[in-house]
Design a protein around this nucleic acid. Structure first.
Lengths: 341, 341
DNA sequence: ATGGTTATTGGAACCGGTTCCATAATTTGA
DNA sequence: TCAAATTATGGAACCGGTTCCAATAACCAT
């Protein structure tokens, strides 16, 4: 019905018949092999063009044992931090003819396992995972199939899995200590759901350690990871009398945006009345009022490195090495220096 | 080296030998065929489990002529609007065992064509494109290969391609007319790069038509599509004396966020001194100060529909029908009603 | 008991490039 | 001029599931 003229799908064999060459030669042309006569190549290419031939990816993959596809399982695409990450990965992979297949887990380990298996079953040769914690079945599956995989956004893998990312605990501590150096000894910490999210857990652990080490007092507030969550936590904090803290540390910039808005709504000036610090350095952080002091996560660099490592493993059997990327505090204007008062 | 014991990769044939059944039966078990004896199935599954067998996706794809993979080419993943869209698509596809492969074009038509070809060459069975305008080579390629494709974010395809999205021109006009009904007859319109972006062009055209129809005066400002762009355009506008308009319409919420910040920086109150309207209804829009009046694009619904349409075409040869989704103005508090003054 | 199901299973052909080995043609070297 | 390279090309085997058709066995009703 699609091809009224009895035209079977044409493959290399048909092409071979048409041009008078063999399937081997056709294939060599298709793969830019050096050992094909110029004129031959020209003729074959012409025939390919004229016949509108496109090669069958599945057959190619079967014969070469390569799909040139790598899979990524992230909690969600709805947060721009992941989108930025995947964007970088995709850019890097595309340059080498690789494709990126994505799946979302919603942050659930069992869902992650399921999705990972599906990606492999659909042809992914390697996997990019978020965080260090994965369920046992997944780890076993990866080991049994000798499937290359990388934990990201963390700097330490689980069960021997390599990781490429940053040290969440160290950064949490760094952030808290930064606030302390600015004279804030009482800070409220707002974070997203910690359950099923080892990165958040690590950040919290770091903050706790920092507070202990620097002799600061902190209060933890857990909320949904969105602007609404930040705003409602802030409202809650503002309602406390007396003000429990001189600064709020948000373990994600989205939360900080919510706090910023809520402060505006209450007539609380940042940083005069309250200091605010974020985590991520999203697009808007440099332009808010006031510009947000935050920790710039090396999202793009992480993506690039992850892609490179995976391709190196697949193309050259190079072992993937755990990599810890540095992240810097970007000091802007949302944190007041209390020592100058 | 990877398998010290001379274990060849085991396939259905090896499994057949192990269990004493034939490859056909193994395959039937693998595919949950009904015509396999219960006991047989149990034995085979046990063997599969014990041997740690995983089927070869490429071979399967070759034999079935299905890859269960669909590709999407978007301008970028860095804007949350696309991420939200893809998130919805991925959710829907995953439910039916499909995988989503993504590629970014940077908004360039030639790059889009290249990436689309790569996706197909890597196994995608159908394509999701952004916008209605695509280069001739791509259109021809799709037609020649009879490749299912959908234009998204627009409500009218090109060259017979089906589209699933919203009417950008109508929405632009609707937004402008809304401002006019609130008494704004002089509005500044800020938008992202119009070149290579038919959706932006359509919105502008709609705004223009609305202004003409409603007798309003508008000024267009083109800038980069990010918070910084919105802020700098706003700064530019604020610098004009006298103020050229009573309202600013941003053709993307990101721009509106920039304007909001810049207004704050200049002590300009929204909506008292200046009204502001956006486009997209991003996460934060409901929580900003003031909450942003904007147009809610049905991004998620669009994604779901696109996925369904493509799967229907692939699984059941159902033609893909162009679909226009409605989008509503979400009236919040950033637009003042001048008629009450 | 007999012709005719129904339930299972075997097995080979097939999907469509790729690649290795053999063959042939042309060139280089001494 | 003859052997040794070097360059092109043919062609078959192969990658590993899937599927269709034939075959066997067990079962049923007449």
């Amino acid at each position: 019905m699609e091809e009224p003229s009895g035209t079977k799908k044409l493959g290399v064999r048909a092409l071979a018949k048409m041009t008078g060459y063999s399937t081997g030669t056709i294939s060599r042309v298709l793969n830019n092999s050096a050992l094909v006569n110029k004129e031959t190549r020209r003729q074959v290419l012409e025939a390919i063009e004229k016949a509108g031939y496109t090669r069958n990816p599945a057959a190619r993959a079967l014969a070469t044992q390569r799909t040139k596809t790598i899979g990524a399982v992230v909690p969600t695409l709805a947060h721009s931090i992941f989108a930025r990450f995947l964007n970088a990965i995709e850019q890097e992979l595309a340059g080498q003819g690789y494709a990126l297949v994505i799946a979302t887990s919603g942050g659930d380990a069992d869902a992650e396992e399921r999705r990972a298996r599906e990606l492999i079953d659909l042809g992914a040769e390697g996997l990019i995972l978020s965080g260090a914690e994965h369920n046992a079945a997944l780890l076993e599956f990866l080991a049994a199939g000798n499937i290359p995989a990388i934990c990201t956004s963390v700097c330490e893998g689980q069960n021997g899995l390599p990781a490429i990312g940053y040290d969440n605990a160290a950064l949490g501590e760094k952030a808290l200590r930064f606030l302390v150096t600015r004279g804030h000894e009482n800070v409220c910490v707002i974070h997203g759901p910690a359950e099923n999210n080892d990165r958040t857990q690590l950040r919290i652990a770091g903050v706790l350690a920092g507070a202990r080490g620097a002799g600061a007092e902190i209060r933890l507030y857990e909320t949904s990871l969105d602007v609404a969550g930040g705003a409602s936590s802030a409202a809650h904090i503002f309602a406390s009398q007396p003000q429990p803290a001189s600064a709020i540390l948000c373990l994600s910039d989205v939360l900080a945006l919510g706090v910023l808005f809520e402060a505006g709504r209450h007539g609380i000036a940042v940083p005069e009345d309250l200091s605010l610090m974020g985590f991520d350095d999203l697009d808007w952080a440099a332009h808010s009022v006031p510009p947000l002091t935050t920790i710039r996560l090396p999202t793009a660099r992480m993506g690039t490195n992850v892609a490179k490592a995976l391709m190196g493993r697949l193309d050259a059997a190079k072992e993937i090495e755990t990599l810890r990327l540095e992240a810097e505090i970007v000091e802007r204007e949302s944190v007041a220096d209390l020592r100058n008062r």
